[in-house]
Amino acid sequence: MPVHRSGSGTTRRSRLAALGTLLAALSLLLTLPGAATAADSPTAAAKKPARGSATMGMGVIAHDGRGGLPGGTLVAQTEGVDVSSHQGNVNWATLWNSGVRWAYTKATEGTYYTNPYFAQQYNGSYNVGMIRGAYHFATPDTTSGATQANYFVDHGGGWSKDGKTLPGVLDIEWNPYGAQCYGKTQAGMVSWIRDFVNTYKARTGRDAVIYTATSWWTTCTGNNAGFGTTNPLWVARYDTTVGTLPAGWGYYTMWQYTSSGPYVGDHNHFNGALDRVQALANG
C-alpha cells in the first residue's frame, strides 16, 4: 500500500509539472510582438455601424479628419446645424439663442430607415423660427436613385413654398458599411446621382441640394462637373478654409465646417445673409 501511494504522488507531480510548462508557454506566446488578445480583435459588427445609423459627415471624419474652425473673417455667413437621431430631442430654443437660423434633419436612409426623432427635430426647428429642411443619406448599393428619391419625398423630404422650408438634400459620401464608392464605377455613380436628383425634382419642383466632400466626389464620380449649374452645393470640409470645391461648382451654398460645434449637431455656414437662406427656401 505505501508503494501505491508513492506512485500516485509521483503521477500527480508529473501532471502538475506538465501543466506548469504549458501555462509558461502560453504566457510567452502572449508576450511576443504582434500577439493578439480578445480586446485587440474587434468583431466585424464592431467595425461597421448598424444600418440606418449613418449621419451627415460620418465619412468626412473617418477619411479627412475633424480639422478646425474657420479662420479669418467670414462675410455674410448664416449659421446652421444638421442633426439626426444621434441628437435625440433637440433643445431648439438654445440653438436659436446661440445664433443658429437654419437646420437640416436626417429624414431617411436607403429605403429601410426613417429617423424616429424626425418630427421633433424638423417641426421643432420650424417652431422656434428657423428655416428648416430634410436630408437623405444615400446608399447607392441597395436600391436605385429614383427609388430612394421617392422614399425620401414620401417620408419627410418634400418641399412647400412657405418661406421656411429648404429643398431636400442628397447626402452622398463615403459608405460607412463597405466599399467607399458603394461598388459603383464613376460613370455608374454619376448615373445614380442623376437618377435621384431628376426624380426629386419631378416630385417636388425643386433641385435637390448635393452634400458631399471634394475628395469623395473626385474619387467616386471622377470629379464630374455636370451638377454645378442645377444643384446647390453643400460641401463638407473640417478645416479653417473651405478649400477646393468639386468640379462644376464655382461657389458653395453651404459649408459644413465642423462636427464638434457648440450645443448639438454639426455646424455649418450658409454662404450669404439670412435673406439668401430665405431665397433658397422660396425657390
Rank of each mutant, 00 (worst) to 15 (best):
K164M: 15
G205M: 03
G156T: 14
E173L: 12
T218E: 09
A138C: 01
D162A: 11
G145T: 05
T204F: 14
K201S: 05
A208P: 03
G156K: 13
Y211W: 08
P167A: 15
A138I: 02
T143I: 01
A149K: 00
F196T: 05
W159Q: 01
T199L: 03
V169P: 03
W216P: 07
T221G: 11
I172H: 08
G168K: 03
G205V: 00
T212V: 15
Y182I: 09
H136K: 00
A146W: 02
N198W: 02
S144E: 12
G183H: 13
A149M: 05
F152M: 09
G205T: 09
G205C: 01
A202S: 14
D162M: 11
W174M: 13
S215A: 13
T204K: 14
A187V: 07
S144K: 13
K184G: 00
R194M: 13
F137P: 08
I193P: 00
G168L: 02
G163P: 01
N150F: 06
N150W: 11
Y151M: 09
T218Q: 09
A134C: 09
Y182V: 10
I172G: 03
G188F: 03
T142W: 09
R206P: 09
L170T: 00
G178N: 07
A202I: 13
S191G: 13
T142N: 06
G183T: 15
T142S: 10
I172V: 15
T221I: 05
E173Q: 15
T147C: 07
